[in-house]
Write a protein that binds this DNA or RNA. Structure first.
Length: 196
DNA sequence: ATCTGGATTGACT
DNA sequence: GTCAATCCAGATG
């Protein structure tokens, strides 16, 4: 099954809106082993210089955050402990905003995903930001790519019936920012990550 | 050169 | 519920 990447224009919308528009879209990764993909069911927006929870808070510009200052649609990956997390860069150039992809519902390459994620319940394959990167084999080598061209891209998926929003996860030490309702998910979808 | 801590996960009490 | 794994970016000297 092949998919058509969404055009670069898709990414040219305000970050919070894009974070919701991404819900239901298909995240695809092609490797030598084949194609694996999943529908995005949970995202979190990080709002650049003004957002204490963002790596780019105060326009902090480093080797890691550099890609956030680039144009919308770039791939921002970073390592969290033993896991890779993946973001969609958004906002105009020099406005370092990004959207973290937190959960997927598996679509293509179920056997591949199962093999990569080991013997566990299917719902555990992709219901977390570090899990889905392992399932699709998204790594630091994808840093700086564009989401509108293979091997890592986003395509049209389904249109969510209901979208819910609430505080982001895992950012306890960021003052007021921890309360901002910038996490968005497909209501009632079983693959949405569980909060702690 | 060295130290610190994290946008997580999985195993264990 | 708690906690270790395990590694690198970022900060500091």
């Amino acid at each position: 099954m092949r998919h058509q990447p969404l055009p670069i224009e898709f990414y040219l919308q305000p970050t919070q809106l894009l974070a919701k528009q991404l819900l239901g879209c298909l995240l695809v990764k092609e490797t030598d082993e084949g194609i694996a993909s999943g529908y995005i069911v949970e995202t979190e927006a990080y709002m650049g210089a003004e957002d204490r929870a963002a790596h780019s808070f105060g326009n902090r510009r480093t080797k890691r955050t550099e890609i956030m200052f680039s144009t919308a649609g770039h791939v921002y990956t970073f390592t969290m402990h033993t896991h890779t997390l993946v973001n969609v860069v958004s906002g105009p150039i020099n406005t370092p905003e990004a959207i973290l992809i937190r959960a997927l519902e598996p679509c293509d390459g179920i056997d591949l995903i199962a093999a990569r994620r080991g013997k566990k319940k299917p719902v555990e394959w992709t219901n977390g930001p570090g899990k889905l990167t392992a399932a699709l084999e998204i790594t630091q080598s994808d840093y700086g790519r564009c989401f509108f061209e293979p091997p890592l891209y986003i395509a049209q998926g389904f249109h969510p019936k209901d979208i819910a929003s609430g505080p982001r996860i895992g950012i306890e030490n960021t003052g007021e920012a921890r309360f901002y309702p910038w996490r968005h998910w497909v209501a009632d979808n079983p693959y949405v990550s569980k909060s702690r």
